[in-house]
Amino acid sequence: MRSHLVLMTLFAFFVSLVFAVIAKDDIREQVRFGGLMLAGFLAVAIVLGWFMYPFPL
């Protein structure tokens, strides 16, 4: 497993899952909160990735 996108998605999934389960008690709310958080993580990571594209190491 060497894909950065897969690992980043997996990482975001676990963090979103734990935060959603801690923050909400109702399953429907947990799914909604966790889904939004996961989508936010992925969107921010992809947008920041593109912003960094012009800057070589």
């Binding site: 060497r2 990482f11 676990f14």
Partner: peptide, 11 residues
């Protein structure tokens, strides 16, 4: 994947 591994372990 070293840095990712560290992030998984720490978090």
């Amino acid at each position: 994947t070293y840095e990712y591994g560290n992030a998984f372990l720490i978090v």
